[in-house]
Amino acid sequence: MIEIRQVGHAFGERTVLRDLTLDLSERRIAVVGANGSGKSTFARLLNGLLVPNSGTVRVDGLDTRRDGKAVRRKVGFVFQNPDNQIVLPVVAEDLAFGLKNLGLPKDEIGRRVDEALDRYDLRPLRDHPAHLLSGGQKQLLAIAGVLAMAPEAIVFDEPTTLLDLRNKRRIAQAIDALPQRAIVVSHDLAFLEHFDRVLVFEDGRVAIDDRPAVALPAYVAMMS
């Protein structure tokens, strides 16, 4: 459960979030909105990557302002551009990065790396340089690196925006198959149709908060 209370945030002069109060407990939550509506900033609040100027964000009772590290163990984050998220040069090394940070024993790290490689058919690429992967494989590697850390929820910030149609579908399937709670910022409305809840952001506020069947058509109407 993520509790957001009276959250406001500004970058210098520019206010991006205004007085948000929300409880997030559904298994699949979508966040949509125009560019600049505050949704990326909102995503970064959820695992303490960003601490709001005012108000509080709590994850299972842990305040992101005080317990940032514990929150980041609970909530993983997948970025739009996997090139910025893959930090080590070799595929298996990168998968192990987060696990080493968690201080896991060596054999457990090895086991989880193998599991992650198998899940997304990356096993043959184990010792490959990460930059030689295709765009879709890179995004799968980024997701696998977060998933291996076994977070309770994962936030995705436009995970399919930079991908071609085939890879968009592949990543959407990968997200669908996750056992975890997922909060997905996306412009890919078809992918969000079977989610449990949709938050439509406009000008730093949640303009619509409803089931996809109601919220998505309303969002489309709002944009046109």
């Binding site: 992101t64 590290k69 993983g76 984050f77 930090v87 990065f97 940070n101 968690l102 690196g145 977060v146």
Partner: peptide, 19 residues
């Protein structure tokens, strides 16, 4: 990149708890 590293619990100084 820096946010991605922190998001994966990188913490070489052991500054537990703080953002």
């Amino acid at each position: 990149i820096a946010a991605a590293i922190d998001a994966r619990s990188y913490d070489p100084d052991g500054t537990d708890g703080r953002p």
